[in-house]
């Protein structure tokens, strides 16, 4: 099978800071990829590069057989990008915002209207379709963002913390949505800090830290014959694990005490 995404030697620097360091990756179609890593690891940058938003990088990337630098518009029209709690023009109503987005993807008025209505209704926003979004909660905005990323029926969906602000029911709905999209053969690139969700929904998990891939495989492969869950694997690979000590330090600081071993990390 031909990979739907191929990344060769991807590097990205912001000034002196290296955000992505020589990443190689192949993604097969129809997979859900869980892309995880600590804050600042380079997850969002990867997703922005793969969505065609950042075009200033080193390395070669093909999406659906097209070099992204040479065919950025074709790639953008086939991928959906759902950022985490991104800003939207919230003086508009969801219906108006989706009409605007639909036009950017060259959808007809009828298709926009029909899809917006159905998708927002599924998200429980039917009654809010013509209400300005400046009064919306975080979760409601995120639902509109998800809808806007899927409105043009993309083949690949890049999701960056799509569950931010969503309530428990909406989280279940999005998890089911991921499975439904997978059934339709769509590839999903899913960034999140919610390890339990990533563990449950992903066919393959990629762990990135300091701009490099440090683990890549199915959940079973990552376990390496241990009974660890993803949270424990994540912690083992990306931190020195002294959480108990740090928690003690925090509690001690509140009570004007010094806990044994406090300031160890500073001194180190």
């Amino acid at each position: 099978m031909t990979p739907i995404i191929t990344i060769r030697g991807l590097s990205k620097n912001y000034g002196d800071k290296t955000v992505l360091n020589n990443i190689d990756l192949e993604v097969m179609p129809g997979q859900i990829i869980g892309y995880i890593g600590p804050n600042g690891a380079g997850k969002s940058t990867t997703v922005k590069i793969l969505s065609g938003i950042i075009q200033d990088y080193e390395g070669e990337i093909t999406v659906m057989g097209k070099n992204i630098k040479e065919h950025v518009l074709e790639v953008k029209s086939k991928v959906g990008y759902i950022p985490e709690l991104a800003e939207l023009y919230d003086l508009l109503t969801p219906r108006e915002y989706l009409t605007f987005i639909g036009k950017l993807y060259k959808l007809s008025d009828e298709v926009i209207e029909d899809r917006s209505l159905k998708m927002l209704t599924s998200f429980g926003l039917y009654n809010n379709m013509d209400q300005r979004m400046d009064s919306f909660s975080k979760g409601m905005r995120q639902k509109v963002l998800i809808t806007s990323g899927l409105l043009h029926n993309p083949t690949i969906v890049f999701m960056d913390e799509p569950l931010s602000g969503l309530d428990a029911n909406a989280v279940i709905l999005v998890k089911e949505l991921l499975q439904a999209l997978k059934q339709e053969g769509k590839t999903i690139f899913y960034c999140s800090h919610m390890m339990d969700v990533v563990e449950k929904v992903s066919d393959r998990i990629i762990l990135i830290d300091k701009g490099s891939i440090i683990a890549d495989g199915t959940m079973e492969e990552l376990r390496q014959n241990n009974s660890d869950n993803l949270e424990q694997i994540f912690s083992r690979l990306t931190s020195n694990g002294d959480f108990v000590q740090k928690a003690d330090d925090l509690a001690a600081a509140m009570n004007d005490r010094t806990s044994p071993g406090q300031y160890k990390s500073i001194n180190e």
Partner: peptide, 17 residues
């Protein structure tokens, strides 16, 4: 200009030639 100028990210993620 806009106070919500960051919402303009959609222009960069859409296939606008």
């Amino acid at each position: 200009m806009s106070e919500q100028y960051k919402a303009a990210w959609v222009f960069y993620s859409s296939p606008v030639e």
